[in-house]
Amino acid sequence: MTIQAVIFDWAGTTIDYGSRAPIVAFQQAFANVGIDITEAEIRQDMGLDKYTHIHKIINLPSVQNDWQARFQVLPTSDDCDHIFMDFKAILLASLTEFAQLKPGMAAVIDFLNDNQIAYGSTTGYDEEMLAIVQPIAASQGYRPTVNITSAQTNGIGRPASAMLELACDRLEVTDYANVVKVGDSINDILEGQNADAITVGIIDGSNLMGWSESDFNTLAPVEQTKLRAKVAAQYEAVGADHILQSMVELPALLASLNQPVTELP
């Protein structure tokens, strides 16, 4: 086959090892209204656009119960809007701290450029958030040709395939089956599957793992192995086509996928 395009996610996949920036912002925005939420509660829906994600969190039974106990009423759509605006302000102020490319990305970029494979992104970030991370990533050599948010697909985000399909269309890709979708969350994999694309889940530095690079590197090798196996099992459970320990392995996978098919006589 010939790979026509590679579509990446942003936080946790290409930048922001451990997808830390959204976690910090979600927890602070809810803490500002007196509600504590766990990383696990946040991460179970990572990959959605951030406004939809706020609604998911606020509708969790634990959050509903805490909200009613604190305010004697259930949260409203206005409450969601308020939390989202606070979340967004916190995230925008911190994104520059989390825009470093993940290990292995330089080699990935070189491979894509050397083989003239188009690449773009879909993301749960909005345009303002992208406006901050894009130039920082570009200064490190990462310059996706297209960057699609749910605002460009009438609010339809992951796990639907609309953003990926729009990215492919703008790259003039004719066959989604020859597209590789690379992500770090379950919603990334589902997005790719819903477009009939090849799906690749990244383990190290992923949302599913959740550890910062420095904290992960302090773990004993046996603990690192356990964490990696746990993440791999989650990708396997949803049927990811390929599971890689890190971005370092992606060029070799792309090279193997990009081989011409030999027809039998």
Rank of each mutant, 00 (worst) to 15 (best):
W211S: 11
L257G: 06
I3F: 14
M129L: 06
A167G: 00
Q27K: 15
D45E: 07
I15L: 01
I186T: 05
H53C: 10
Q224T: 02
Q4R: 03
T218W: 08
I54D: 04
A5F: 15
N59M: 03
I23G: 05
A93T: 00
W211F: 13
A21G: 04
G192L: 09
L92N: 08
D188M: 07
S94P: 01
V222L: 09
R43D: 05
I90K: 15
A31G: 15
I23K: 08
D45Q: 10
G12S: 07
V133L: 15
Q100H: 03
P221C: 02
C168L: 00
W67V: 10
D175K: 06
A89E: 07
I42A: 14
G141K: 03
K102A: 04
C80D: 10
N32H: 11
A195V: 07
L91H: 06
P135S: 13
P144Q: 04
F87Q: 07
E236F: 08
P75T: 15
T122F: 04
D169E: 14
Q72V: 04
V180R: 09
S121P: 01
G18T: 02
V73E: 14
L254T: 11
H55W: 02
E172D: 15
E249A: 08
I83H: 11
S246A: 08
A31D: 15
L257Q: 02
I7N: 10
L244I: 06
M163P: 12
T153M: 09
A229C: 08
H55P: 01
I198Y: 02
A229P: 03
T149I: 01
A29D: 09
F87A: 12
A138F: 06
A5W: 12
L130I: 14
K102L: 13
P251G: 04
F26C: 13
H55F: 03
S206G: 07
G34S: 15
K56V: 04
A220N: 04
S256P: 07
V33L: 10
E172W: 13
E223G: 02
I15W: 00
D184N: 00
A237T: 05
A137Y: 01
A229M: 03
A162V: 06
